[in-house]
Amino acid sequence: MIVAPATAADLADWADLRQALWPDDGLDGHRAEIAGMLAAPDLANFIARTEDGLAAGLAEASLRRDYVNGCETSPVAFLEGIYVMPEYRRSGIASQLVAAVEDWARTRGCSEFASDASLDNLRSHAMHAALGFEETQRVVYFRKVLD
């Protein structure tokens, strides 16, 4: 498996992987967001490809300078999204993607790496634990519409 920073040449595969991870956003929305992400200095985006060049997974991360729940330092690298195609899961790709983000984070002065998952996403919880993350907090957000 080859893990490398995502570039404009990866646009089609990158958008397809994002669509698989976040299906409600639509391919056009993903393409537009990727265009902006390519120039952002505080973002890291990696694509994992097979030896044959097939896109197998992605990791997207940001550098968060504000407070991150459960962290004590700043800046903090934050895993915004990670996805591995089902046929490639349990083969170490997520670990390779996370390692690439960790390397990127260290070069930016980070000593902590954070992520999140919804309370009901138990598969994501298990993946995070397998990748060395530890749970720090559980949060339920509330909202009230004002007239």
Results as ranks from 00 to 15, higher is better:
residue 100 A to E: 11
residue 14 W to H: 12
residue 82 I to V: 15
residue 25 D to T: 08
residue 12 A to R: 05
residue 142 F to S: 01
residue 147 D to P: 15
residue 132 G to V: 03
residue 93 I to V: 15
residue 25 D to I: 06
residue 70 G to A: 07
residue 3 V to K: 08
residue 97 L to F: 10
residue 87 E to M: 06
residue 116 D to C: 12
residue 34 I to C: 13
residue 14 W to R: 02
residue 134 E to D: 07
residue 146 L to M: 13
residue 16 D to Q: 08
residue 131 L to M: 07
residue 120 D to E: 15
residue 115 S to I: 01
residue 6 A to M: 14
residue 21 L to E: 04
residue 68 V to M: 10
residue 58 L to I: 12
residue 135 E to T: 06
residue 56 A to S: 09
residue 123 R to C: 05
residue 5 P to M: 12
residue 86 P to N: 04
residue 128 H to F: 13
residue 63 L to E: 10
residue 124 S to A: 15
residue 141 Y to G: 00
residue 98 V to S: 09
residue 132 G to K: 04
residue 126 A to N: 07
residue 18 R to V: 00
residue 147 D to G: 15
residue 115 S to P: 00
residue 132 G to S: 05
residue 96 Q to S: 14
residue 71 C to A: 13
residue 33 E to F: 14
residue 37 M to D: 07
residue 43 L to P: 00
residue 5 P to R: 15
residue 118 S to L: 12
residue 107 T to Q: 15
residue 117 A to I: 01
residue 76 V to F: 12
residue 79 L to C: 12
residue 146 L to K: 07
residue 84 V to T: 12
residue 90 R to E: 13
residue 130 A to P: 01
residue 121 N to G: 08
residue 93 I to K: 02
residue 106 R to M: 03
residue 41 P to S: 09
residue 4 A to E: 15
residue 125 H to A: 11
residue 94 A to E: 11
residue 47 I to G: 03
residue 15 A to K: 02
residue 70 G to H: 08
residue 48 A to K: 06
residue 50 T to S: 14
residue 107 T to E: 14
residue 29 G to P: 03
residue 1 M to Q: 08
residue 111 S to T: 13
residue 20 A to N: 03
residue 118 S to F: 14
residue 137 Q to A: 02
residue 52 D to P: 00
residue 74 S to V: 05
residue 7 T to G: 11
residue 2 I to C: 03
residue 89 R to G: 07
residue 118 S to G: 13
